[in-house]
Amino acid sequence: MDFFHVIVVLLESTIRVSVPLIFAALAGLFTERAGIFDIGLEGKMLGAAFAAGAVAAITQSVWLGLLAGVLISVCLSLVHGYASITQRGNQIVSGVAINFIVAGSTVILGEAWFRQGGRTPALAEGARFQTITFPFADTIREIPFIGPIYADLLSGHFILTYLAFAMVPISWWILYRTRFGLRLRAVGENPGAVDTAGISVIWMRYRAVICCGILCGFAGAYLSLAMTAGFVKGMTAGKGYIALAALIFAKWRPFNIMLACLLFGFLDAFAIRLQGNPLPLIGQVPVQLMQALPYILTVILLAGFIGKAIPPKAGGVPYVKER
């Protein structure tokens, strides 16, 4: 029973750390499927986390905070869109730029406005998300096996957590079962064909970028309004890149993204849990190896040793109408 308990705790923290990854990776899914590479996920997430934390601290309203986070993230997405769609600039350069601008300005502005060493003030009860407890969670907990699964794994998460997991089938439905989704994917594979059909490639790609902004906004708001009570400088700590790795690892497919994020989240939770304890059979595993594992796995996948990751065909190429 003790082993079972450990597993439940581990899975619970896996879910907790996977949520921002799922949001961000789905965000990347929308832009990359539309043919725009986005390594600015990290920056957008960080910007959203800061805006959400700052606005929630000032207004004492968690919803205004969430709104601010989404708004800032969409604005940053539009900058990326303007540079890579309208100006036909290099999409990777633009993503790098956004990451830097956000990393610097969140600290400078946070320090200027709140004077707490780049943090936003700690959020009170009403200004952050509360966990939702399912009905009868406490009574059912006593039932062996099913009880802890219901009470600790399914119940007791934030509303954004449930939203993240709901977004997986929703994204799938949008991308594979709606006209918008079909066109979005077509724009990423063969923009010329979409243009011939009389649909604006530019406008299609802008909409994809906005979708990305909204989802990154949720990811950031989750970090500063749910996972911790307030913004801490550099709090994304490479999660945007892990999400990017998950997106590739999942070969740009929604359900695979969820699994990849859960896997990477599990490795993260496991590494924290393991800290200093030897594994059975294998012995002592350095924490650093566990931390690097998502990246190593992604490289191995990219090398084509675990299936083949084929990116959207028109990814990274700005669209120029023939004249």
């Binding site: 036909r88 600039g89 830097f100």
Partner: peptide
């Protein structure tokens, strides 16, 4: 003191944006 060294990171990002991604603006 209100302008910490993170200001450089912003300038760096802006240079990358304007000299790189938006070079043709």
């Amino acid at each position: 003191p209100s302008i910490s060294r993170d200001m450089i990171v912003i300038i760096q990002g802006l240079v990358i944006l304007f000299a790189g991604a938006l070079e043709n603006m």
